[in-house]
């Protein structure tokens, strides 16, 4: 464990908690893409199946359980409890255009053709594009609540910190995982224009509205 990975995990946890609290306290999921949240629940489900097969550390297990629990709770709030506040008309990204190519790629490019490894690879590839429905929804509505921008900031920051963690681990441990790194770079790049808007607008107290 290194400071970049720990900070990255805490940033990820902060994002997940911020979103869940925002929806729970405001009793509304307006502006939130339910599709992205379903994709994230799928990412965690396919990645953390090793909860059933191997124990790495109390921290690892605890975080995985929290991530899975919060992501399913968020999906439950959006599609069941607070369904009336779900803005389906703006959450129209065709997720099948993500799942099918990612699923195919996971079969073609992986470290080991075993079920658990292919599911892990699918989860890594899917996570790198899972935020697209949310970013697409913001571009359609033309704005985002400030709390939603903080959620996106921490979510984007987590994988950017993981990139530094992978540089650190390569240098100090000789460890690297090309699949995770390439997907992580793609994932972070997708946040770049949001990061620009976040820094130039939200951090200056303005509302995030598009076109910039």
């Amino acid at each position: 464990m290194n400071i970049f990975r720990l900070t990255g995990d805490l940033s990820h946890l902060a994002a997940i908690i911020i979103l869940l609290l925002k929806i729970w306290k405001s009793r509304s999921c307006a502006g939130i893409s339910g599709k992205s949240q379903v994709l994230f629940a799928l990412v965690f489900t396919t990645r953390y199946l090793d909860l059933l097969t191997s124990f790495i550390s109390l921290y690892n297990t605890t975080m995985k359980v929290i991530y899975i629990g919060c992501s399913y709770a968020t999906v439950y709030l959006i599609y069941m409890k607070l369904k009336a506040t779900y803005d389906g008309n703006h959450d129209t990204f065709r997720v099948e255009f993500l799942i099918v190519p990612v699923g195919g790629l996971a079969f073609l490019v992986n470290h080991d053709f075993s079920p658990l490894e292919i599911l892990w690879t699918f989860s890594i590839y899917l996570e790198s594009v899972a935020i697209l429905p949310q970013l697409f929804m913001i571009s359609k509505t033309g704005e985002a609540e400030t709390i939603t921008t903080h959620y996106l900031f921490f979510l984007g920051l987590y994988r950017a910190l993981y990139l530094i963690n992978w540089i650190w681990r390569f240098y100090f441990e000789g460890f690297f995982d090309m699949i995770a790194i390439v997907a992580g770079v793609v994932q972070t790049i997708l946040y770049c224009d949001f990061f620009y808007l976040y820094v130039t607008k939200v951090l200056k107290g303005k509302k995030l509205s598009l076109p910039a």
Binding site: S57, N60, M63, F175, A180
Partner: peptide, 10 residues
């Protein structure tokens, strides 16, 4: 190639 099976990250 990566150290196999070192899935210790979240």
């Amino acid at each position: 190639c990566p150290i196999r099976g070192k899935k210790d990250e979240l």
